[in-house]
Design a protein around this nucleic acid. Structure first.
Lengths: 292, 292
DNA sequence: GATCTGTCTATTGTCGATAAAAGACAAAAC
DNA sequence: GTTTTGTCTTTTATCGACAATAGACAGATC
């Protein structure tokens, strides 16, 4: 195995989804754009579709023979890219299992445990190191700094600086900037979730990320936007792992978001600062609670 | 070549430096601590010292036979770690040669040009990507975003946020904190350089980094401290490459630093903010001038 | 009893090789 | 004349291998 073919498998599955709705396949370049892959991969997909009897394909003549069945899909485990697999596996280890701060991280051991080569693990660790949870000792091991209270405080300190500035910048966006329309859409989803909070409170996590990322983007500063990755990954795994009072916490956060959105619309710097601080304060408290 | 032996060569050279001063070598573990390498490397060094006739070595009995000569040293090109070589080579390419923003970066081409394997280049690019100058298109090439005016503005925006906060935190450090003594030392060097500015203005770059890093450390926030790497690398290469008016610019910056240091000592938040802003403003202007 | 040395093992850093995926270009089809 | 397909080349992602380096442990030396 030199390279995984997860791009192919994932795109193949998405192509099957398309086939469930329409029985017409467009040209190779167009299908490539739709699926976000190159023509090489599109052709691999078409070949496979022919092999499993879903399609006859000759030049421009593509005839769909039947609707895809569940068995036609590749299993989901096979469609995740290696880095996703490593990330999940690694986060589980350091969040769940006894992962003491100061612990050494062993590339070879990690690689063997996940069943992959060391190169991929190394590259993952290098990428991951910017999240501030691990640190390299050159020519020697990595050290786990751990998901500690200090980490959470340092993270939220920077987050608050960045988000206040971004929120202020947001208020200065011209009326016709697409961000305002996106804000409308996000607000509508907030109302929809709140209206059915019992069933939908779990949808908050994704919405939260979408909202805050929109705000951060208004800073038009790559360092601020990039830093949101750190926040996003921390909150992402935090939500997966700390479910106590999730319903109430999320309901409260949704309300705070609505106040925050209203403040942005008002374009009044003082109101914005108040609403933003209020929300970030409770986000910080939630995060800290889950640590101690 | 599986792994470079630059650690060995560099430590060997530093050991020769030691031998120029003293003719006594301590035990293996102690020498290891002094040189910052493992005993394995220390023993390799001792073996080599014996081979070139500088030493007789039997167990604890180490007898230095002669002073090291220039010819005993490994040439400096051989003591740089691969990542240093790649970094310099890469920075030269993107700062000097026609490096248009939007240009594609080719791993294989870079590797061949520097004469190293692709893995090292990949890892370098991944590490380097956090500086915001390049960006990865998965399964495809890297894109050079370039050392543009926008880059400089985004960088300095964050720098100013972080440094103001750090400077405020610095003023709150207890009187007996070692940072105050380090500040004294740094101030003394400022005076020394200013007193002989004609000859020593080139020493400013290193001092600048030392001073600002000290300030940033007071934030006790890993994200703020880590961000200083971005600033440092940018200014480091900037100083190497833009020498116009270097003497006057550095003299002015030294004076600003002294005012800034005095403000820190006063512990008055308003004075600190003034002095810090003043200095950061001219640092930004200097940087921007070199771009347009 | 603490420290040092000899010896051995474990781990990292780097390389070249290879399958997957991207992408270039000309001929073919509309 | 634009878009599509066939074919081919280039580049990335991943692996296993191996030298350099770190580090562990027991016996030797102070």
């Amino acid at each position: 195995m030199a390279k995984q073919n997860t791009v192919f498998k994932d795109a193949f599955n998405r192509c099957l989804k398309l086939l469930e709705q329409t029985a017409n396949l467009p040209s190779e370049p167009e299908l490539g754009t739709t699926l976000g892959v190159s023509r090489t991969t599109v052709r691999a997909i078409l070949t496979r579709l022919e092999e499993v009897g879903l399609l006859t394909w000759e030049k421009r003549r593509k005839v769909v023979l039947r609707k895809p069945l569940a068995a036609d899909y590749f299993p989901t485990e096979e469609t995740d890219s290696l880095s996703e697999i490593i990330e999940r596996s690694f986060m589980r280890r350091i969040l769940a299992g006894g992962a003491e701060p100061g612990m050494q991280i062993n590339e070879l051991e990690l690689a063997r445990e996940i069943g992959i080569g060391t190169t991929s693990v190394r590259e993952f660790l290098i990428r991951f190191s910017r999240f501030g949870l691990i640190e390299k000792r050159p020519n020697s091991h990595w050290v786990l700094k751990g998901f500690t209270r200090d980490f959470a405080l340092e993270l939220t300190e920077v987050r608050e600086m960045f988000e206040l500035r971004s929120a202020t910048a947001f208020a200065r966006l011209p009326e016709d900037h697409p961000a305002w329309r996106e804000l409308d859409a996000i607000e509508a989803i907030h109302h929809a979730i709140l209206a059915d909070i019992e069933n939908r409170y779990r949808d908050f996590s994704e919405l939260d990320e979408r909202f805050h990322l929109l705000v951060h983007r208004a800073s038009k500063n790559r360092f601020i936007v990039d830093f949101y990755d750190v926040i996003a990954i921390v909150f992402h795994y935090h939500y997966q792992w700390n479910k106590t009072n999730a319903r109430e916490r999320n309901a409260r956060a949704l309300e705070e978001h609505l106040a925050y959105i209203a403040a942005l619309r008002s374009r009044d710097p003082i109101e914005i600062e108040l609403a933003c601080r209020q929300h970030l304060k409770s986000a910080r408290e939630t995060l800290l609670q889950s640590i101690n």
